[in-house]
């Protein structure tokens, strides 16, 4: 009995010392977009070593992230789709982008290698609408003079689960294809007019690889890891661009953030000669008047660290760090909007 008490006391003492030495470290929880989950997890591991604070990010999807931050069961949420200023002020939330990524079309057509094929937004929309049915369709052929296109049916692959990838992809198609906008629209999941649906980026990648004549859309990392044949795209400026970190960064810096209140902006179809047209971000959602100011302070310093020091890790995972001006704009947004 005595030894037992002594053990407990020792444990308490050790606990107290640990607590004292980590007085500024806090545990922060977040949930939402799976698009940013790999990079937040990576950042948080490094940040924990440096600052001692743990950022526990749960994923679960944007819908879950928005619901959980509104219920205040987490310290921050992350959504692929920006909330409007009205939605934000109704819930007392502030919003800012986290990191940049991109969605790329991938194809499985014999003889077509990565970068061989070029698509326009309108054409991509027509393919996903089921209007362009064959790879040797005149519409594809005229955009790709000289390419050898087989007489093969196009098999459209989409995401069966709701996702930010789908949101950005359908948002882009709605901007560049009027028919798409009126018939299908945009959302984390939509009613696909044609094709099959795979679960997750990995599911889409697997379906495209298994089905002869398939076209799908995945995040860049999946296209590169699986060595898939991604296509080039014609962007808003009419220039042909390849999907890579440089063209994602170009889109992020050309997007009109300055006039986007609460950063309510979807970057697809961004202006600029080098901009990749289906560039995406995810948005962090935080309380403007947080209950626990210490936690929020630490959360913001985590993001600040990520913007300034987390770039290398982001690029290693095929994300692009935010442009400097954007990061500066976010910091002044914090100062103006978030009461600490």
């Amino acid at each position: 009995m005595l030894t037992c008490i002594r053990h407990t006391l020792t444990a308490l003492a050790i606990g107290a010392t640990l607590f004292a030495s980590n007085a500024f470290a806090v545990d922060i929880t977040g949930a939402g977009s799976t698009f940013v989950q790999p990079i937040i997890t990576k950042w948080s591991a490094t940040y924990a070593e440096k600052a001692g604070s743990h950022i526990n990010y749960g994923g679960g999807g944007s819908g879950a992230g928005i619901a959980q931050i509104k219920a205040a069961t987490v310290d921050f949420g992350a959504s692929d789709k920006p909330l409007t200023t009205e939605e934000l002020s109704a819930a007392g939330l502030g919003q800012f982008p986290i990191v940049i990524g991109g969605v790329v079309p991938v194809v499985n057509v014999e003889g077509i290698k990565a970068g061989d094929l070029k698509l326009t937004g309108a054409l991509l929309g027509d393919i996903y609408l089921g209007k362009v049915k064959k790879w040797n369709d005149p519409a594809i052929a005229s955009a790709n003079a000289g390419a050898k296109l087989p007489d093969l049916a196009i098999q459209v692959v989409s995401r069966s689960d709701g996702s930010g990838t789908t949101f950005n992809f359908t948002n882009y198609l709605s901007k560049v294809n009027a028919d798409w906008k009126s018939k299908v629209g945009e959302g984390t999941s939509v009613q696909w007019p044609a094709g099959v649906g795979g679960k997750g980026n990995a599911g889409v990648a697997a379906y495209v690889q298994q089905i002869n004549g398939a076209i799908g859309y995945v995040e860049l990392a999946y296209a590169l890891q699986n060595k898939m044949a991604f296509t080039k795209m014609e962007n808003a400026a009419g220039k042909t661009v390849s999907p890579n970190l440089a063209s994602f960064a170009a889109a992020a810096s050309h997007a009109d953030w300055k006039s986007a209140k609460d950063f309510n902006l979807v970057m697809t179809n961004a202006p600029g000669d080098e901009s990749w047209p289906i560039t995406a971000t995810a948005f962090a959602l935080v309380y403007k008047t947080p209950k626990d100011a210490a936690k929020s302070k630490e959360l913001l310093s985590f993001f600040k660290w990520a913007y300034t020091e987390g770039g290398k890790q982001a690029e290693a995972l095929d994300y692009v760090p935010l442009p400097k001006e954007l990061a500066t704009q976010i910091e002044s947004y914090w100062k103006a909007e978030i009461k600490l």
């Binding site: 679960g60 999807g61 944007s62 819908g63 879950a64 928005i66 069966s160 689960d161 709701g162 996702s163 959302g187 984390t188 999941s189 649906g197 679960k199």
Partner: peptide, 11 residues
């Protein structure tokens, strides 16, 4: 399959 696929992002 529908439930498993779509529940997480049912917005």
């Amino acid at each position: 399959a529908t439930i498993a696929n779509e529940f997480a992002e049912a917005d």
